[in-house]
Design a protein around this nucleic acid. Sequence first.
DNA 1: AATTGTATGTCAACCGGTTGATATAAAATA
DNA 2: TATTTTATATCAACCGGTTGACATACAATT
Lengths: 325, 325
Amino acid sequence: MVVKIDDVARLAGVSKTTVSRVLNNRGYLSDTTIKKVHDAMESLNYQPNAVARQLFKKETKLVGLIFPTVDNPFFGQLVAELEKRLFDSGFKVLIGNSMNDPEKEETYLKELISNQVDGLIVGAQNRDISEYHTSNLPVVSIDRNMNEDIPVISSDNYQGGKLATELLINSGAKHIINTNGPVNLKTPANRRTQAYADVMASHNMVPHTYVIDFNWDINKKERIINEMFKEYPEMDGIFVTNDMDAALVWRTAVKLGYKIPQDLKIVGYDGANSTRVLLPELTTIEQPIDEIAQVAVKTLIDRIQGKEIPAEQILPVKVWKGQSV
Amino acid sequence: MVVKIDDVARLAGVSKTTVSRVLNNRGYLSDTTIKKVHDAMESLNYQPNAVARQLFKKETKLVGLIFPTVDNPFFGQLVAELEKRLFDSGFKVLIGNSMNDPEKEETYLKELISNQVDGLIVGAQNRDISEYHTSNLPVVSIDRNMNEDIPVISSDNYQGGKLATELLINSGAKHIINTNGPVNLKTPANRRTQAYADVMASHNMVPHTYVIDFNWDINKKERIINEMFKEYPEMDGIFVTNDMDAALVWRTAVKLGYKIPQDLKIVGYDGANSTRVLLPELTTIEQPIDEIAQVAVKTLIDRIQGKEIPAEQILPVKVWKGQSV
DNA sequence: AATTGTATGTCAACCGGTTGATATAAAATA
DNA sequence: TATTTTATATCAACCGGTTGACATACAATT
């Protein structure tokens, strides 16, 4: 049967209070007693039941992560780094892939709250979900504007949009298109499109932003991208809002007979590890994904500890010069 | 303050036993009482404390996943699909990225056991870690041979290795190299290399297997791959044990002046979603990743329910014809 | 009218670990 | 010698929800 603290106490010849003191390194304890208790634990293969302690301590050492999916280079790298840093800081991670579905996100949120997570790091849909406000839970957001209570970590999206657009213009592109997700999704990533429009205006160029929804499947995306090429046959430059879509744009252009970058210059956004290995030719705006994770974890731990934290933290981007511009 | 079942009972004007009966849909209950209780829960924004119930029920509805990392197309897709199916089956997922480090894996295992997970799905290091045996926890393994107690799900690695090698031979390659991870890692993936050797022998060709460790960083991998090109200058075909490494081989070959596939034919293994988008030109042996996840979740749930399950389940692979052969 | 079913309450114990209050005894210190 | 510190035990309550046993009252059925 499952070994309990009483069993350890009996074998060690001490009280369960003493075993608890050894487990928690609390109170006066002789070296002899400590050794006897450890020997008993090892002998019985005792594994303390964290659930009992969580109930009493009102602290689970669990953190919930809600992101669209880890089946994606950007989110995969982000979640991997978040998990690593949280674990190194004594937390375990409960993960929810919400697929940007508000109902699914709300279900996850309720489940995580019910499981008494100590905090949340989220980067998913942000349609008004009341539990974010009512639960009094420390939350940190990545690339999503939730409300003024919830700190946001993001890359310098505006600067990234600016760099991308200027790079295309300086490389001779004259008809530059931008793609973005749905604008009702409140995210700092919208600043990429804003920067694109600003830079275009300052060069007396007409901006065009094409919506490609993150959640569309590959086939739908390919159809929409084909339509984009039909709709803008003069397009000779494109700033794509993420690398996966940039890759699709690239493949579609090649199929249509375009030469990259002679006929069409392409800039993406993300620069994740996997993308770097699988498609290093793609010129892209590189987000500091590992740094975003590091800052998010530090901010969450500060929130859990009740410290003052900044409302927004914007981390610098870089240009990765591939061969698509 | 935090709302408890007593608070809901007081507002609804019933006993906490009645609230518990409503929560669990147990015993006789009138519609009026059910409504009163639900209204009170909503009014107070009551969120049941799962920890208390977990302690009593000795069931957490949590499943632990231990994989090397989700910052990788194959594991990212696998973990995303596992999480989705587990959540749809009423479980939440605690994730541990072990980076193939046995000590880290053991730490994760202990933590997950302590957190009373109902089961585990693992696909990481498998060096003898005693807790897999002693904890009496339902475990399912993906692509790892643990012991005869633990069921294994994998793709048909032998068939994959056979298909890859035959494809290279049938395309005219005469000097074919294979890469694999460290052979002391007990994994069905070693059958890829076995199949390669068997097919080569049957064509009177000398097999060469080059070890590339999954955990080496990009720089070390690139160095080792460069050395491989120096050591086998006559190489005109290569079967790479995973797509990320295949991409690195491709880039290195191009840098060295090879034309793909004229001078060097390349076959990878995995065929993950992200790889398909970012490098569709890569010819690869496509694992049924989503099916592996589906079977693993079904097997784990069967184990949790004490049902008889098969010791090994091998799922069919396919060839993805890119342009690298 | 008697019996059975429905509805809800009371009570207390439990799940496993934590911990404060208090007690006792021995060792160390002033 | 008196006081303080160290070491360990006992006891019981707690954390929040679950649930069985039993009670009471009313409604439905035989």
